[in-house]
Amino acid sequence: MTAIEQEYVPPVRPQSFIRRLFSSRPVAISAAILIVIVLVSVFAGIVTGSQPFQIRPRMRLHAPNAMFRFGSDALGRDVFSLVLFGGRLSLLVGFFVALVSAVFGTLLGLIAGYFRIIDGVVMRIMDGIMAIPGVLFAVALVSLVGPRLGTIVAAISFSEIPRVTRLVRSVVLTVREEAYVKAAESMGIPTPLVLFRHILPSCIAPLIVQTTYIFAAAILLEAVLGFLGVGFPPDIPTWGNVLAEGRAVFQRGPWTIIAPGLFLAVTVMAVNILGDGLRDRLDPKLSRNAKVAA
């Protein structure tokens, strides 16, 4: 090689991804809040002490004080413990819904985007699912099968899968025309390998972003189900259940719904802000570095 080509200097490696992500203050604060909420939910037993759900009929509807940090509910239970333990199930539902809908949605999206013959059928089915109101379907399924974690996750995931499928399919449609995918095909690489090695990695970034939104939506939907009385049974605390029970007495003890409502709202908002932050960083069209390089 002559001198002209050897002078090429590869672009300077940009700052680490994590550092750039958290350089935005709202994103950093949201992440911190989420970590705190997850930790206190996971270690709820330690934080709240023994007998978290003890019913104390004589201590009904106490305002927040030294003993009941968030007050007590109509049965004299500690709202603080209820909210923390409730967070466990709500976060779990959010996590599993995000996972399940991401996995199934991705598989369907890859198939629909790559095999053009199946595309029409898969996408029309997805359109059909999107036409069913998510809450109604979840209510129907849970009343039919019974309120268990698996059922609730399945019921909520069902209506989230089409969103992921659409997203992944649209990425596959553009990436499958890239020369490096054509090159892999021309080398006789089997189709599943082409899909997972060469096409799937391009879907990961938008997928992470979409998954955070689904996570937030699932927590909300689970709370809606609990509030409507078709979620987990009333003796198992979730944010939705606690809200539902507080509804009857909220004029005398507003703290019974303020505390779980606040946790729910803050969690959902934090997840969404984190999702926006990820989108800004992962979407190459919005990234600052990509613009300068072009």
């Binding site: 490096y180 054509k182 090159a183 021309s186 006789g188 690489i189 090695r197």
Partner: peptide
Amino acid sequence: RRNIQMIFQDPYKSLNPRRRVGASLIEG
């Protein structure tokens, strides 16, 4: 397909950006 191979016009698009050059080379 191994008998007939292609060299593409745009070198910026014909290598998988997420895989090491070696991996792309030995894959086939």
